[in-house]
Simulated assay, not measured.
Amino acid sequence: MTLPRTAATFPPPVMEARRWIADAKFSAERPLINVSQAAPVDPPTDALRKHIAETALTLDSAHLYGPVLGLPALRAEVASNFSAAYGGAINDSNVCITAGCNQAFCAAMMTLAAEGDEVILPTPYYFNHKMWLDMTGVRCVDLPTGPGLLPDPDVARAMITERTRAIVLVTPNNPAGVEYPADLVAAFRDVAREARIALIVDETYRDFHSKSGAPHDLFTDPDWADTVIQLYSFSKAYRLTGHRVGAMIAHPDRLAQVEKFLDTVTICPNQLAQHAALWGMQNLGQWLAGERAEILDRRAAIEEGFPKLAEKGWDLLGVGAYFAYVTHPFRRSSLQLAQDMVSDAAVLALPGTMFMPDDDPAGQRQLRIAFANIDRAGINTLFERLAGLAPRKVSS
Rank of each mutant, 00 (worst) to 15 (best):
E16P: 00
I21H: 06
R30M: 14
N34I: 06
S36R: 01
A39F: 09
P44D: 00
A47I: 12
L48G: 05
L48R: 05
H51S: 12
T58F: 12
D60T: 12
G66M: 05
V68Y: 04
L69T: 07
G70P: 01
V78H: 13
V78P: 05
S80M: 02
S83F: 03
G87D: 10
C96T: 12
C96D: 11
G100S: 05
N102G: 13
A104K: 02
M109T: 01
I120F: 01
H129Y: 15
G137F: 09
R139V: 08
R139N: 13
D142H: 14
P147D: 14
P151E: 06
D154S: 13
T161I: 08
T171P: 01
N174K: 11
E179A: 14
L184H: 02
L184Y: 08
A186Y: 01
A186V: 00
R189W: 08
A192I: 06
R193W: 01
A195I: 03
I197N: 03
I200V: 15
S210A: 15
S212W: 11
G213P: 10
P215G: 04
F219K: 04
T220L: 10
A225P: 05
T227D: 09
Q230D: 09
Q230R: 14
S233Y: 01
F234G: 05
S235D: 13
Y238P: 04
T241F: 12
G242I: 01
H243G: 05
V245H: 01
M248F: 02
A250T: 07
H251W: 05
R254V: 00
L255V: 09
A256H: 06
I267K: 15
C268N: 15
H275G: 03
A277V: 02
M281E: 05
Q282C: 10
N283P: 10
G285V: 07
A289Q: 12
A289C: 07
L296Q: 08
L296W: 02
A300M: 10
E304M: 04
K308H: 02
G313P: 04
D315P: 00
D315I: 00
L316S: 01
L316Y: 03
L317G: 04
Y322A: 07
R331T: 06
R331V: 10
R332I: 11
S333C: 07
Q339I: 06
A345Q: 08
A345P: 06
A346V: 08
L348W: 02
G352L: 08
M356V: 02
D358F: 06
L367N: 06
R368M: 13
I369M: 13
F371V: 03
A372E: 13
A372F: 09
A372S: 13
N373T: 11
N373L: 08
R376Y: 02
G378L: 13
A387F: 09
G388C: 07
L389T: 04
L389K: 07
K393E: 15
S396P: 14
